[in-house]
Each structure stands twice: as C-alpha cells, then as structure tokens.
Design a binder for these strands. Structure first.
Length: 306
DNA sequence: GACCAGGTGCCAG
DNA sequence: CTGGCACATGGT
C-alpha cells in the first residue's frame, strides 16, 4: 500500500489539470487508485498522487519531477486555440480540459505500446501489470513494481512472456528487449532526430508499425504533432471524409485538419469517442439503449462536415 | 458464440 | 500498391 511511502506529503498548485482523466486516457497503464488518489511509479520512483481541486498532494518525488512527468508546463489554452476552427475537435478539447499528454520514460512506453495491438486499454493494463509483478523491481513503498528493465525481459523466454497473457505480442517484446539490452537499439538516440527519422527508427523494431510508433513519439518523445491512427481515430477522421482512405492518408489528413498539436487534439477525440461521447457510425453499441431496435439508422458517418 | 479491441507482417494478385 | 489473412487473449 502506498501508505508505506513514509515521506511527508508535499503539495503543489496546478492549473488546468485533471489527474484522473490524464491517467485513465490510455497513455499510461499502471496507475492504481488508492486512498482517494493514485499510486504508481515514475521511472524507478514509487509515487503517490492525489488531486484536490487545484492542489496536487504527492509523496515520494520532487515537485519538479512531478510537473515534468505530467507536463504541467504545456500551454493547454494555446493547444485548444489551435483547433478552434474545427467544431468537433474544439468541443472535445473543451470537454477534456485538464487532460495532458505526459512525458513518459522511453523504454516503458516503447514496451507497453508493443503490447497494445488488438487490445483494449484495460487489457494492456493487465499485461503491463503482470509484467511488472513478474519481472519488475519491487520498489519499497508501493504496491506497483517498476517496469522491468530491457535486460530483465531479455533474459526471459517467449513462453515466459506468454504466461503474462501477451499472446502473439510476446515474441515482439522479447526481440525488442534484446535489441535494447544489447545496445543495438538505443531509445535515447531518438531524442535528437526529426520526428520522421525517429519514427523510421522505431518502425525497425519488431511489433512496431506506424501507429505504435506514433503513440511512442507522442507519449514519450513530446512529438505533439504525431497522430496515431487506431480504429477509433480512423472512424472519426474517416467520418469527416466521404471516401475510403488508408491509415497513412488519414494520418496526413488529421495532421492538416488538427494543426501543430494534432497529437494532442487526437487524444481528446480518442477520449471522447472511447467514453461514448462522440456520435460515431457503427461501433459496437455503447451509447446504451436500443438492444434490438434495428430501425434507427442514425446519421451514417458525418459527425461534422466542415 | 459472435464480435471487438489504441495493429503488424507477410503473401498473393 | 492494394486486399486479405493469421496472429492470442479477454470482455460484452
């Protein structure tokens, strides 16, 4: 339990920050609720955070590190303004006020998004926690172990990893862990590259295609223009157009439509869609209601036209 | 049971 | 270049 973080609690004033929405928006996967807040790790530090209005109470970390991790310095007002010309996006941005794109540790982000293909957020979370329990260092002071180092995973086998429920992702994660552990791939080396070059490098890793690479760039390398096109974003962006488009076309289209912070805006749209607040064509019926009323065509596509 | 999930890689035409 | 398919697992 986090109560074992035997350090005096610090307090930080924050503006435009929603801890819950940020931690549950599908960018990080290990924070668990406790004592009215959340316990988790930031790198190899056990942390407890609790929000009370504009106050952030925390244990186990410095306020500077906490601000950096949660990107409290991002100018959300400017980011919202950047999509003011697009109604659906702007509305989503307002509804997601306080949701921030965090600065996550590189390896942890690379590894968890290798787990993401064809999995719901809740499942990624399960796999991520299973890996931590099985191979992560137990930090004093929290119930959540640190994410295992590349080396720790490199020493496992594909069969070991499948026991954590990874399925076909086990092979990709193992191979990538070995490439990183051996130094053949250095996540730090991407920092100085252009987004395009960094993406190209990421895509050389097994299990990482364009979508996963964009998630990593957005959530860990602060490339706020990167647009991961998953099934949700494809539906949303697709509904803005009339013709079919490839994921890469949709990505380009999204970049133009959503502006210099396209990745940020994408996250707002994703969050709204995933929580059932966007009227999308034919997802699996989540908007509650009609169990078997086949006679409500509801507007097909076009959740916006301009 | 069918269907779906923050896709990727590979192979045929 | 495009379309189709296998790949594992867990929840509705």
């Amino acid at each position: 339990m986090s109560k074992t973080i035997a350090v005096p609690e610090g307090t930080l004033v924050c503006a435009e920050f929603n801890l819950r929405m940020t931690l549950e928006s599908g960018q990080t996967f290990h924070w668990t609720e406790s004592e009215g807040g959340y316990t988790g790790c930031i790198g190899k530090t056990a942390v407890f955070v609790r929000q009370e209005g504009d106050l952030l109470h925390y244990r186990g970390i410095t306020p500077e590190e906490l601000s950096h991790y949660f990107a409290l310095d991002h100018d959300l007002e400017a980011i919202r303004a950047s999509c003011a010309g697009h109604a659906v996006s702007h509305e989503s941005a307002l509804a997601c006020r306080g949701l921030r794109i965090m600065r996550q540790p590189h390896w942890e982000c690379i590894a968890t998004f290798i787990l993401s293909p064809m999995k719901q957020v809740a499942h990624i979370r399960q796999m991520s926690l299973a890996l931590r329990e099985a191979y992560g260092r137990k930090l004093r002071g929290t119930s959540v172990p640190a994410f295992p180092d590349p080396k720790a995973l490199a020493e496992t086998s594909e069969r070991d990893l499948r026991l954590c429920g990874l399925g076909f992702r086990a092979k990709s994660l193992l191979s990538t862990a070995r490439l990183v552990a051996s130094g053949e791939f250095d996540p730090e080396s991407l920092i100085t590259l252009s987004t395009e070059m960094a993406r190209k490098e990421l895509c050389t890793l097994p299990g990482i295609g364009r979508k996963v690479a964009n998630c990593i760039l957005l959530f860990s390398y602060e490339r706020l223009e990167a647009v991961p096109v998953d099934v949700w974003i494809a539906r949303i962006l697709g509904s803005f157009r009339s013709r079919k488009a490839t994921p890469e076309q949709l990505e380009r289209y999204g970049g133009k439509l959503l502006g210099p912070y396209a990745g940020y805006i994408q996250q707002y749209l994703f969050h709204r869609a995933r929580t059932g607040k966007l009227d999308l064509p034919q997802k699996h019926g989540r908007a509650g209601a009609h169990r078997h009323s086949r006679s409500t065509p509801r507007s097909r596509g076009k959740i916006l036209e301009s």
